[in-house]
Design a protein around this nucleic acid. Structure first.
Lengths: 351, 351
DNA sequence: CTGAAAGCGCTTACAG
DNA sequence: CTGAAAGCGCTTACAG
């Protein structure tokens, strides 16, 4: 690549000091009381020489990079790529850019991503944390490194966060299924101790209890993240390819679980919503194109992304005096919407 | 945030020079012939003080950031987020990180993104270029800035690139439709002069010509990018809500066009593949869950991402002497696979 | 009104 | 074997 032109080149060209050039190009000519004609000449030659400031140098000097690190489970998952897009736009409005990384739900990978991004001096992190990352995150908190968790959270960690009300969303979904006449409701979730998933499970259990619907070992089944396709296929086989105690409805805890589940349901030509009611968390094109459009629990990626950036901007741009302690933590809990469509319409109880 | 520990802190702590510390931590102790016991002490205190090198400082010094800028039309489009994931992984293997930006098919936005990323000193760019960006890109070429185009390209620009054989993919798709008995084939494409899209249109036209199938003003219809939903809805209305000359099959030029088109087809309860055959470019969960799974033209995002990074790595890491001219440009054309499924099965000609 | 100088945190050629 | 020094491209407090 060609040699870039620096402030020094401009200064030499005009026979002035680099300081002068710097002041002018940063529009601080008033402050430095540079003459207007000199300011003009500097600006002109800067344009002429096609000068581009080296933000790396500025960052070294200022200690700020105006860069946000984004760590999600997988950037190719539409839920996360939608959030990424919102974050990109919000960050851009504030003159920040975004570096991203995918943790694959793996704590070590998460640690090494955090590390890499910090070495690159990102000003803040937005993280959808993986299981067993409380320690890494609490280390960040100790060092007062600005970050905000999205989608997931930890009970033992006092950190900024944006998430939906997982318990209630799940709870309402089950109540909705019951109201439509379904009684053998089964939840398919991830096998993880992450509290957001735990909340979804607990919301399910609580609603079932209140409804006095029977729970058994097949009521709440769990898939791994790594072998989701095989796990969901097996679970579906065990639940659907049997006569006794076959569920009459499913609550899927994420879009990936639902997509895998729907494929199995399609294979078996099971009739939704008559034989089987379905509700899933998240959104997906698949939900729209499944022959019976899915009722789903919508997490607004728009709001999640916007709130996350807003929290960080407040923290990064605020004057220190505004927060005497400097330790305030913001948690936003967004209400998830149940979008009702065809996949669990009214059903007569058989008896 | 807490003060970070620097090489200077370590040096002070041990009463040695920063140079020594730097050599040891970069494993260049041999070169600097540092004593092994001192090297050990330095490493120990570095760990003890939780030293993290400031990569910004290193970058300023080296002129390299080990960062790749990725510019796509929209990171939330699955096609691009899938590529982003591949690029992330490949970059990571080479110790690079990725900054991304979405151009929204807008030339000005593209220019300002390129500018912002260059000011941040990315070592290279991977770009899915928007319309009318030849000039910006040719400027990059002039400055010998390393970049590689993905998905799209420009005839007038000699640049690195990875793309599929768009003409042939389209051509084969039409031939496939014809073989299945469809004769009134209609293509829905984007209204753009981008050559990759032009190639898809030309492949369609060429095949139609060879097949001696009649072309009329409705054979090839175009949607804008900004108002895709309205445009496709209108086109579908004009083509489908009529008795005369109704097409018997569609070739969609991208996943977004297909998804919008399929929604219109669903609304009208048109029977695929009997009343209407369908083939689309790209992939989508929607293609799997449409009641009649779509035959599609698969662009391997895996290969596109990998080849793009490979080209850059060759360029960035190679010793100068390996390329006497230093101007070689690499273009990879990947063969797209036609994945045949249910959406255009055998159809008897009516007559 | 203007410019020399120090410094951000590193690396590395060079002198001893 | 070891360290002082210059330099990467900026910014800015300070002296004149």
């Amino acid at each position: 690549m060609e040699k870039k032109v620096s402030i020094k080149d401009i200064a030499k060209h005009l026979g002035v000091s680099t300081a002068l050039v710097s002041y002018v190009l940063n529009n601080k000519e008033k402050q430095a009381r540079v003459g207007p004609e000199m300011a003009e000449r500097i600006r002109a030659t800067a344009k002429e020489m096609n000068y581009q400031p080296n933000l790396i140098a500025r960052s070294l000097q200022s200690g700020k990079t105006r860069t946000i690190g984004l760590i999600v489970a997988d950037i190719s998952n539409p839920f996360f790529s939608n959030i990424a897009r919102v974050i990109e736009d919000e960050a851009s409005l504030n003159n920040y850019t975004v570096i991203f990384g995918s943790s694959d739900e793996n704590a070590e990978k998460s640690a090494s991503l955090i590390n890499a991004l910090i070495k690159r001096q990102v000003d803040a992190l937005i993280i959808a944390p993986a299981e067993n990352t409380e320690e890494q995150l609490s280390l960040l908190s100790q060092r007062k490194f600005p970050y905000v968790l999205i989608d997931r959270y930890f009970n033992t960690l006092d950190a900024n966060g944006v998430r939906i009300n997982n318990f209630l969303a799940s709870y309402k979904a089950v109540k909705h299924l019951a109201k439509q006449g379904y009684t053998k409701i089964c939840m398919i979730a991830y096998q993880t101790k992450l509290p957001h998933m735990e909340d979804r499970k607990q919301g399910f259990l609580k609603a079932m209890e209140e409804l006095q619907l029977p729970l058994h070992e097949n009521s709440l089944r769990e898939s791994s993240y790594e072998a989701i396709q095989e796990d969901v296929a097996l679970i579906m086989h065990q639940l659907l390819d049997t006569k006794k105690e076959r569920p009459d409805s499913f609550l899927f805890a994420t879009n990936s679980l639902a997509i895998n589940g729907l494929k199995e349901i399609n294979k078996r030509k099971i009739v939704v919503p008559d034989e089987l009611g379905i509700i899933s968390f998240d959104e997906s094109d698949a939900f729209d194109f499944f022959y019976c459009p899915l009722t789903y629990i919508n997490q607004s990626t728009e709001r999640i992304g916007k709130e996350a950036v807003r929290i960080l901007m407040n923290q990064l741009e605020k004057k220190p005096e505004h927060s005497p302690t400097g330790l305030d933590t913001t948690q936003i809990v967004i209400d998830a919407q149940l979008v009702t469509r065809a996949s669990c319409r009214e059903k007569k109880k058989k008896e």
